[in-house]
Amino acid sequence: MNSLLYIEHLEKRIDEFHLGPINLEIEPGTITALVGNNGSGKSTFLKLIMNLAKPEKGNIKVNNIFTHGENEDWKNSVAYLPQTVLGWDAFTGNTLKELIKALYPNWDEELFLKMVNLFEIPLNKKFSKLSQGVQQKLNLALTLPRNAPLLLLDEPTYFMDIPSKKILMDLIVDWMEPGDRSIIIASHQIDDIRKLSDYLFVLHNGKFLGHFEKEELIENYARYWITSSLEDATIPGVVLQEGNVIISNRISETENYLESQNIKWNKRNTLELDDIITLLLTQNKQ
């Protein structure tokens, strides 16, 4: 299958900050959550894909076209929603729509009107007069209907109220139905990650920690309540120990060791996704 996005050996340096190396391939039909601490390089990574920042090393292909080349046809295959847009303040939603619609041949007017209606966006007010939440809604209504196969969303729901977040999730599920589109969504909202993502792409201070299938990642971790004495045992696979509770990310190694040492546990459970993300983003500090 052709990948919508293909990235190899990507590296970027900004002063002391170093992003990468990153290798990533995005298949059609999938949603990838871009997860990381503040300042981990998520936004920079999305800008690199859009050719808005230049990498030191590596290649990026969108729909099989190099984004740094002469051929700019790839731009029709990707729609990007940045955290903040520049230069929109003086325009109304109506004007912005006409400007953007002209650039995208697959523009879906019906979807645009549906989103305006669901989010109750006033189209005759200047962008600068809208609240941050409404600005985000308008921005989304101007991005999804472009119907580009690859959608890059940078913190799309940060300022939105709870009902609007739910509406957006349903819109995204519908938008994905054709099965040949993909989304990369940078988000700190655990609900977005839980309900929408198939894969998690994790960055910590610019370092690429992995590209995980959601259930595989969850299945890798388990928490045990130990009933016998642990003393100072170093248990293989254990990433966190608090009293008699241990967390492992190499379950079979841990269980084999516990059994061989005759250490008993009376309860084992799975970790929540946010606990796993926290472990990934804090362990790496040491």
């Binding site: 994905m176 139905e177 959601k214």
Partner: peptide
């Protein structure tokens, strides 16, 4: 439900 819609409701990936 479609694979994508059920995945959202059950909070699992479409792969599963």
């Amino acid at each position: 439900p479609s694979i994508r819609a059920l995945s959202k409701d059950l909070e699992i990936s479409i792969i599963t």
